[in-house]
């Protein structure tokens, strides 16, 4: 697979390591009343779709940036790649 890095252009997927569903960007509030439930879902439960999947890849053997890659889990086709930093800011994360 080739991942079209927003800064570096197409790179071999071997340069990256895979973390998982991009929903991991949205870490729950540890002070919420139901924090234990929220963290159980956050840590252990997954949507695991057959089809489009937004996921976190880390450019370990490159510029060490985190990317959000939209990839089809049935065909492995990659349709969108963004810097995870930008995605997190757009979703309202401050850091």
């Amino acid at each position: 697979m080739l991942i079209n890095h927003p800064l570096l252009g197409p790179r071999d997927a071997q340069e990256f390591t895979y973390l998982g569903d991009a929903a991991l960007i949205q870490r729950p509030d540890w002070q919420a009343d139901d924090a234990a439930d929220q963290f159980h879902e956050y840590l252990y439960l997954r949507d695991n779709p057959a089809g489009l999947h937004r996921e976190l890849w880390f450019h370990e053997a490159g510029d060490r940036s985190w990317l959000v890659v939209t990839r089809n889990t049935v065909t492995h086709e990659i349709t969108d790649v963004q810097l995870a930093r930008d995605v997190a800011r757009n979703e309202g994360r401050s850091t």
Partner: peptide
């Protein structure tokens, strides 16, 4: 292979 997949085929690495 290390990434989510339902494709029943993997990659060369």
């Amino acid at each position: 292979d290390g990434y989510n997949s339902y494709a029943q085929r993997g990659n060369l690495p």
